[in-house]
Design a protein around this nucleic acid. Sequence first.
DNA 1: ATTTTTATTGAAAATCTTTTTCATTGTAAA
DNA 2: TTTACAATGAAAAAGATTTTCAATAAAAAT
Lengths: 141, 141
Amino acid sequence: MPAQTWLTALQENGYRLTASRRAVVETVAATHRALTPLEVFDLARESHPELGLVTVYRTLEKLEELHLIQRVHQPHGCQAFISASQGHQHLLLCRKCGQVIFFDGDNLDGLFERVIQDSGYTIQEHWLQLFGLCPACQTTP
Amino acid sequence: MPAQTWLTALQENGYRLTASRRAVVETVAATHRALTPLEVFDLARESHPELGLVTVYRTLEKLEELHLIQRVHQPHGCQAFISASQGHQHLLLCRKCGQVIFFDGDNLDGLFERVIQDSGYTIQEHWLQLFGLCPACQTTP
DNA sequence: ATTTTTATTGAAAATCTTTTTCATTGTAAA
DNA sequence: TTTACAATGAAAAAGATTTTCAATAAAAAT
Ligand SMILES: [Mn+2]
Ligand SMILES: [Mn+2]
Ligand SMILES: [Zn+2]
Ligand SMILES: [Zn+2]
């Protein structure tokens, strides 16, 4: 997703366009793995050294609110964000390099039906996440 | 899962049996929703007021290490624990009261096969979690 | 262009959570 | 019992996130 799209979205929602926001947005938009606020801070400061960590937190908050990024849950921590997919999708994460790709087309309706029958629950939402090794990391052990 | 089973497991793994551990274990074993360390602390202190929060953290750590409890990830936080299921299972969580039940028997192999083909990733592990409303919470809006 | 308005910024302080330290206590083995 | 040392909880430290606030900069108004 191009950084410019996010900047436009921010502007259309009444937020101002600043150099600091630009630096955060460009960093997250260009990275294909989940980044913690501190990682965003370090990366974004390479191009914009005056950036403050507080602004990273505040910008990520707005991007998440606009559904432009989403939080990634992992065994070792859940404070990381990645560019959001459009629509409902699921994550496949490389355990070695962190590379994330999205996939769709899960057909879980049969399973849901059985669980609903057995439990009496209604089901409103689901999380499905796969962990493995990306092609590059399979060849370099 | 009975608290006594956990206490025995702790003892068999070289840990001592203390009143503080007992209080933590009994609290978590008796609760059917995920509890944060602070919630465990507050609940366990009702029966054992001398308990320290540090001991809650330390005991939860050991219970997790022995796979007697497992961490529960939710949109609003991921620092909560619940009695673990035996074997590989998935969670179904009530969004209103937090009640958790386990289910098994997902058949995701077809999906995995397709994702492996499309992405080139190998798949080692998966997380599947459902959110909805338990029977009790469906009737009390 | 210039001025005005007000959202945004980053440093510092505050808050909240988790971990470490350490002298004391309690458990289990000898 | 006595002994060895694991475990405890208070306090301090460390880490992460949020709040405060005066200065600044973006957008609107002139
Ligand atoms: Mn999580
Ligand atoms: Mn499964
Ligand atoms: Zn990889
Ligand atoms: Zn419920």
